[in-house]
């Protein structure tokens, strides 16, 4: 629907003479935030952190074992496959931890 001259004049008239919201209302946002449901408590946070630490420790030990088990100067297909799996598992673990930390960032800080 194309606007014509009457639309423009009506629009200008209504904008000028209809109620406007106050430019600032510092209490409005606070009232809204106070009315939001409380954040769920994460009572299992310490358990989650302990699990992450154990997982990272195991990951590091597996990497160390992998490097120690390599034959110097020789790379086998098996080594490549194991390395690829370790990289995938490490990346997945890092991503999961970062996502959990982002979700609970307000609880932490």
């Amino acid at each position: 629907m194309k606007r014509d001259e009457i639309d423009d004049r009506l629009g200008a008239l209504l904008k000028e003479h209809t109620p406007q919201a106050a430019d600032s209302n510092e209490w409005f946002t606070r009232k809204v935030l106070n009315r939001l449901p409380p954040k769920p408590k994460r009572s299992y946070t310490w358990l989650t952190v302990a699990t992450y630490i154990v997982c990272f420790a195991v990951c590091i030990m597996v990497w160390l074992w992998f490097f120690l088990s390599l034959t110097p100067g020789i790379i086998l297909v098996k080594d490549v496959v194991v390395a690829a799996i370790l990289v995938a598992v490490t990346v997945a673990l890092l991503w999961y931890v970062l996502r959990s930390m982002l979700r609970s960032s307000e609880a932490w800080w």
Partner: peptide, 26 residues
């Protein structure tokens, strides 16, 4: 959505407060 950040939501409320309030006033 990801972090349930109340601070971020507060900024969204501030950005749209006057538009939504004006809509209801009319």
């Amino acid at each position: 959505v990801l972090g349930d950040s109340r601070d971020a939501f507060g900024q969204i409320v501030e950005a749209y407060r006057s538009d939504i309030t004006r809509f209801f006033l009319n």
